[in-house]
Amino acid sequence: MAVEVRLPTVLRTHAGGASVVSLDGATIGEVLGKLVAEYPGLAGHVVQEDGTLHKFVNIYVDDDDVRYLNGLDTPVPDGAEISILPAVAGG
């Protein structure tokens, strides 16, 4: 499935400045794996070594948070927009 992945500004320096990357994959996990294969500098910034999502990012497939779907196993429809969003919080 061809999808577009939108990167948050904080991660673009690890992706050659790209804001949107076009990739293929059947699930979120597959797409993110290909993203890191293309830009190894992103390793650990989106998916952690233990295979879970980094606590400082949220991943949306179109309008849905994958944490409330099937996480990294969430299927991605063709043409979906995947957004990697930064966590924004403080005190």
């Binding site: 949306y60 309008d63 948070d65 930064p86 924004v88």
Partner: peptide, 19 residues
């Protein structure tokens, strides 16, 4: 989203809309 006088948190859905 934290509805707190001590901390704040922005719902990722709002971040997506703003983006």
């Amino acid at each position: 989203a934290a509805a707190s006088a001590m901390i704040y948190q922005i719902d990722p859905r709002e971040i997506l809309r703003a983006d």
